[in-house]
Amino acid sequence: MDEKNIYLCRCENFTLKELHDLLDSGITSMEEIKRLSRGTMGPCQGKTCRDLIAKEIAIYLNKSMSEIDMPTYRAPVKPIKLGEIAGGDKNA
């Protein structure tokens, strides 16, 4: 299958082709790849794509996944409306 059509991060439309282009350019840190591609930065918070991207980086670098600098998961677990948070205790 064409790498252009393989989506690693569906929220941000980040493909395997784009990942390989970044790796070929010498950018091999996953933290850096996240910030340049936006992969893992969408509404799902990387919960579907983080491991997929890490695995592809590990294959490319011939390393184990534990050696990849995987980005942290950030809060919140699920997107929340600002109005609901702004209400503070009144919403409790």
Binding site: P43, R74, L82
Partner: peptide, 17 residues
């Protein structure tokens, strides 16, 4: 944010750092 730009009340935040 909701005070300055009230329309943001129905917008979801997805990440903080």
């Amino acid at each position: 944010a909701v005070f300055q730009l009230p329309i943001l009340k129905d917008v979801r935040f997805v990440r903080q750092w």
